[in-house]
């Protein structure tokens, strides 16, 4: 187990925002290493920097200082277009409010990230169907997001996150918009996929009930990693 290579390497990362003229620190020196196939939870109260940390890993924001190395690529030096390619190839995203594209069907939503890949349309379709099947929603392929329940939407979103077979799936509070039971099911699904596909997964939450499913837990508080309280 100790020989597992690390997919993600975060070194002394800080993130500073400006609100008016005064600086706000969202992260104040975070270092973290995540191995391939890990199922990691980031816990912490509201405002502790969970979203910010996941955004830096996802190449959606750039750190103020420090380094983020994903799959051996240093993200902090990359330009917008290259980051977009990294996201398209190596990263899957699951959002708190699902963020499916409302004009697309479930299957088309799952297929969407593949549009930036060089694949034939049949291949795309097949891969999307396979991903949708893995979350148990192939029967709802033709449904629009409006015609799905919250739990179903999040499952479609998970299919969309794994369809590109990314190095890492980032989920920012994936259960916050769902009731307890559904949230637990969603997390269980993610855990199963993590086991079955070996996809590394990092999710954030402030819900203690679902933390027990995590393989490893990191506590964030006021922009720094702390020992479990």
């Amino acid at each position: 187990m100790t020989t597992r290579e690390s997919v993600l390497e975060i070194v002394q990362v800080t993130k500073q925002y400006r609100v008016g003229s005064s600086p706000v620190f969202a992260l104040r020196g975070v270092s973290l290493s995540v191995s391939r196939g890990e199922f990691l939870a980031i816990a912490g109260p509201s405002g502790s920097g969970k979203t910010t940390l996941l955004n830096l890993v996802g190449g959606i924001e750039q750190p103020s200082s420090g380094a983020v190395r994903l799959n051996g690529v240093e993200l902090q030096h990359l330009s917008g277009d290259v980051l977009a390619d990294v996201r398209a190839r190596h990263t899957g995203f699951v959002f708190q409010s699902f963020n499916l594209l409302p004009v697309l069907t479930a299957l088309e939503n799952v297929e969407f990230p593949l549009l930036t890949h060089r694949l034939s349309s049949e291949q795309r379709r097949r891969q999307a169907q396979e991903a949708l099947d893995r979350v148990g929603l192939l029967s709802h392929a033709a449904h629009k997001p409006m015609e799905l329940s919250g739990g179903q939407r999040q499952r479609v979103a998970i299919a969309r996150a794994i369809v590109t077979r990314p190095a890492i799936v980032l989920a920012d509070e994936p259960t916050a918009n769902l009731d307890q039971a559904t949230g637990a099911q969603i997390l269980q699904l993610m855990r199963n996929l993590n086991r079955a596909l070996g996809t590394t997964c990092v999710f954030s939450t402030h819900d203690h009930n679902i933390l027990r499913l995590a393989e490893r837990l990191v506590h964030l508080s006021d922009g720094v990693i702390v020992d479990a309280p």
């Binding site: 996802g58 977009a84 398209a88 959002f95 409010s97 963020n99 594209l101 930036t116």
Partner: peptide, 14 residues
């Protein structure tokens, strides 16, 4: 706006 953010997060370029 959210939809645009989502598409870009999923790798659509500017």
């Amino acid at each position: 706006t959210t939809e645009i953010g989502t598409m870009m997060a999923l790798g659509v370029k500017r």
